[in-house]
Design a binder for these strands. Structure first.
Lengths: 239, 239
DNA sequence: AAAACTTAGCGTATTTTTTACGCTAAGTTT
DNA sequence: AAACTTAGCGTAAAAAATACGCTAAGTTTT
């Protein structure tokens, strides 16, 4: 049985999109017996690594435990390792008690992850929270969220990461809304269409959306194999 | 006296520019008594962190010990932490012997650093090696160098990092040569000048270069204070 | 003194990309 | 029929990128 490595952990900033807002997944802190304070704060999902485990696998394990999902998009974006990061003191007491491990200093490798919000199987203790007003979290988790969002905003301009957040079948309008939500900019639909239509991995389905009081929009899917084949071509993709 | 933390290290990919080629600083591995092999491989500078030390400070310490320089540009770019990264086996034996610490698994935070090559005070055991044909290094250090270069190539397009590599007084031609060396592209001098001249932190000096068989070029300096003030304006800087 | 070669700056043309928005037509629900 | 969206096309204007001709200046070398 692999043992936990108490010196190194992974934290995951999990983003999801609900057709309107970009959200981040937060967890309520477990209650410790006889301590009323410990249930009131939110934190990011995270785990200590196992001794013989790849770093990415630690993050995948964290995601699987929480969402039930495999094969999720994950990207390492920064390390947080200040000697003083495990504060305030009541947060540290909670950490020592809940993990049952003597913790001196933990260096955390931060990942951001993108999931289809509707696919996730969540427990009672998790909430999807809009990224534009994240409450106070434990430790340095607020900083971690902020930097994850900055990384996503930077990287989504040149890599087609949007497909990790969109449903398996999506409309162009949904796609546009996602970009607008992440970048905080308005895009012109006519120009947006002209820009994305040449992407060879954006595949129109035979289906159209239903139950809408306007002309039903065409549904599309992302073809991962075509994306791998045409990957070189998107060096010009730029939103 | 602070103690070494045997679980976490920093490695530094130190870039310098010699007016013609971009180089990376490598170290010859210390010899272990009775082991002829151990002197033949090169490695990146690195250190285990101290227990009460900020991660960045560990990297700064590494740089200071090696180059004698303070206030060097440093950027964290990735974590390397595979359980199997400390191989081949003779490299691991060397590591255990030379650091005198029982080493199980080390997670390394990788930084790239940019220094003015002519400023550094180097020891006998270091060499500046061109980045375009890096020899075989220990552990996963070849991967680390490759990814550091990719990060630099990406980031130098939008941040004026070139000033960290150029001498304190430099010509426009030197600046152009640097961009060409890093990006592997040819730039047109007339267009390059038109692009950089509006930068408010690029300050012409009263001096011109000397001892050249052509019209002496104007010397410039980078003004860090003006850069801080006009930082917002360079969002359009793009090479 | 001339040659050689670079620095410096300007202009212009062309191409490409970005931004903006008018217009027509289609297709659902209310 | 109204309302509202989807879809696509075109065009104009602005901005940015690319390419390169030209003139003049200023050193060292021959």
């Amino acid at each position: 049985m692999a043992t936990l490595n108490p010196h190194v952990s992974v934290d995951c900033v999990i983003f999801g999109f609900d057709s309107n807002k970009l959200k981040v997944l937060l967890i309520e802190r477990e209650k410790i017996a006889n301590n009323e304070l410990s249930g009131h704060k939110l934190k990011l999902p995270g785990n200590l690594i196992l001794d013989n485990e790849e770093l990415d696998d630690s993050a995948y394990r964290t995601l699987k435990e929480l969402t039930g999902l495999d094969n999720i998009f994950l990207k390492q974006f920064e390390v947080f390792g200040s000697p003083n990061r495990l504060s305030p003191i009541e947060d540290l007491i909670w950490l020592k008690t809940s993990s049952n491990i003597a913790v001196d200093r933990v260096v955390t490798i931060a990942y951001y992850s993108l999931i289809k919000l509707q696919d996730s199987n969540l427990t009672d203790k998790t909430i999807w929270h809009p990224v534009d007003n994240v409450p106070e979290l434990v430790f340095d988790h607020n900083t971690i969220v902020k930097k994850a969002l900055e990384a996503l905003q930077r990287e989504i301009r040149t890599e087609p990461l949007c497909f990790e957040l969109l449903p398996k079948k999506f409309t162009i309008r949904q796609m546009q809304n996602l970009y607008e939500a992440i970048l905080g900019e308005n895009l012109d639909n006519r120009n947006f269409r002209k820009k994305i239509m040449p992407l060879k991995f954006l595949i129109p389905l035979e289906e159209k959306e239903r139950g809408v009081s306007h002309k039903p929009a065409q549904l599309y899917k992302f073809d991962r194999k075509l994306y791998a084949r045409h990957r070189k071509e998107i060096s010009g993709f730029n939103l």
